[in-house]
Nucleic acid binder design. Structure first.
Lengths: 131, 131
DNA sequence: GTCAATGCAAACGATTTGCACGAAT
DNA sequence: ATTCGTGCAAATCGTTTGCATTGAC
């Protein structure tokens, strides 16, 4: 957990990561800011953003692939999926689905959600960028 | 195509939709603005946003579920998926994949992309909002 | 005539950045 | 001593909104 991922250690970064790992709610930067402020009152929102970015780039946290105004972050980098409430915007984890055709297409209830649909995005390097 | 979807007809809305349907590049509002301006030079960016929103709500276009600063739109509402280049940000359609377990997990090349991963998001109404 | 659609500019909200200072190596 | 990490505020960027006008019905 304390390998040579970053050039210098920082208590603030450590606390941001700890607080993110504590919750299962996929918080925004602002929400995390409020959580972290309870422990480090003088931390600034800019520091939250800078550290979340850094950690997401290193792959120790996840920046969620969700459209919308505010970015959301996940401290759990184990492979799992998400379900989003189209009414209140809440995001929950989806663990129990096995990804065969029938279940993806036919799942109607997941985690108590009435499922209306899903989106699947692939990531990769396009042929132009592969050069 | 010209049913009673909207209370009043609007040539600007029609042209926005036409231009969006012409391209396969999942443009941002600003890109579409430039395309539409070639035909309607005095159109404003606000009108582009208002109409894209409206049409997405009616379901005649798609607002893509992609994280990032700018929203992207798709004139093709047939069920299909997307592949995003992690280097240049380009987005292409994915049509040929059949969604059984093996293919999702094992696809290594799609549309010339070197695939690195995928994200699956479900949508629905959470139990609290269902009341 | 009514009220939706529009242009324009200002407002907004999330995120980023420049700068000077403090801290880890 | 170097230069990363930080607080702070200003800047930026995408998007939304208020208002007066135009246009569809």
């Amino acid at each position: 957990m304390k390998e040579k991922l970053f050039r210098r250690s920082s208590r603030k970064r450590d606390v941001i990561l700890e607080e993110l790992r504590k919750v299962i709610t996929h918080p925004t930067a602002a929400i995390l800011y409020n959580l972290v402020r309870k422990r480090i009152p003088n931390i600034s929102l800019g520091t939250i953003y800078r550290n979340l970015d850094q950690m997401a780039k290193k792959g120790i946290i996840q920046k969620l692939d969700v459209a919308g105004k505010e970015a959301r972050f996940d401290g759990n980098i184990n492979k799992h999926y998400h379900i989003l409430c189209t009414v209140c915007g809440r995001i929950d984890d989806v663990h129990e689905i096995s990804y065969d055709n029938k279940k993806i297409e036919m799942a109607k209830i997941i985690n108590g959600y009435q499922v209306s649909g899903y989106h699947l995005n692939y990531y990769g390097i396009c042929s132009d960028c592969k050069q």
